[in-house]
Computed example of a mutant assay.
Amino acid sequence: MQIETKRKLTIGGLYFTIALFAIYIFIMFLLNGVEWAPMVKGKMENPDFSLSTWKLFFYPHILFGTISLAIGPFQLTKISRRKPKLHKLLGKIYATAIFINILVVPYISLSATGGRSSTIAFLVLNAFWLWTTAMGVIKATQRKISEHKLWILRSYAITWVFVTFRIFVIPFSIFLDSSVAFPIAVYLSIAMNLLFVEWRTKNSKKHSSGPTANSVI
């Protein structure tokens, strides 16, 4: 009972955070138009920057990123586990949303705030996203369920950088130039999110047995 209560609280907390993030995205980039966002106004100072082309890549980025964020917690619920067809369908949507995002990120990264160092950081993030998600899909096709779960959790940890990056970059930007603040926020988010998954996985295996042993929450 205690484990299930903790699971529900965790999933509820994830969705609460995702809802706040979605509101932030809506206000910052959609309510008044993306060109009024401080981050984008800085890019428009570059004469080579094309706002119309950038929008074609940015809108799918935030759309599919939010979709993958929203699917993740539901896949941990009993409802999803009891309905394998639904779980598989949502898993395909999750992976597809990420793979589409992986295709648009390189272009967005070229005009990343902070210059070349930020571009490299976001491309590294993209590589981790591709690696973890592809491994999760491969393990699923091989019917290696335990390994599939672990790789998808790692993939979701990278997806969660969507949120944690924006949390970390704010304080760093106060004291550091964007060319330093943005890469640090990206790398720190990757490291902390992945380490959390590894820690929770090992902790669950120590204190659980049977069906719950593979649960991260």
Rank of each mutant, 00 (worst) to 15 (best):
A157M: 13
V169P: 02
S173L: 11
R166I: 08
R154Y: 12
L153W: 13
F175A: 03
I167M: 12
K144N: 12
H148M: 01
W151F: 13
L153S: 13
E147M: 06
W160S: 15
H148K: 04
W160T: 07
E147C: 04
P171E: 09
W160A: 09
I170R: 11
L176I: 09
A157P: 05
R154H: 08
V180L: 02
K149C: 10
L153P: 02
L153T: 07
F165P: 08
F175V: 02
K144L: 01
F175T: 04
I158L: 15
A181Y: 01
I158C: 10
R143F: 09
W160Q: 05
F182R: 04
L150S: 12
V161C: 14
S179V: 00
D177C: 04
F168A: 11
A181C: 00
L153E: 07
W151M: 14
I145D: 08
L153N: 12
W160N: 03
T164P: 12
K144R: 06
I145W: 12
V163T: 03
S179D: 01
R166Y: 10
K144T: 08
F172C: 03
V161T: 14
V180A: 00
D177F: 03
T159V: 14
W151N: 14
F165L: 15
S179Q: 02
R143K: 15
S173Q: 14
R143C: 06
S173N: 15
F162H: 08
F172Y: 09
R166H: 10
S173M: 14
D177I: 00
I170K: 10
A181P: 01
V180R: 00
I145E: 14
T164Q: 06
S155W: 05
V161G: 02
D177W: 00
V163K: 05
W160H: 07
R154L: 15
R166E: 13
V163S: 05
L153R: 14
W160L: 05
I152N: 12
I152L: 12
S155L: 07
R154V: 03
E147H: 05
H148W: 03
I158K: 13
P183H: 02
W160R: 00
R143L: 04
E147S: 07
Y156E: 06
S179E: 00
T164C: 07
L150Q: 06
Y156M: 12
V161H: 11
R143V: 04
F165N: 15
V163A: 10
T164N: 02
K149G: 07
A181L: 00
S178R: 01
I158H: 10
E147D: 11
F162Q: 10
K149N: 13
S179I: 00
F172W: 03
H148Q: 08
L176V: 05
S179P: 02
F165C: 08
R154N: 05
F172D: 04
F162W: 08
R143M: 05
K149S: 10
T164F: 11
T159M: 09
I174A: 03
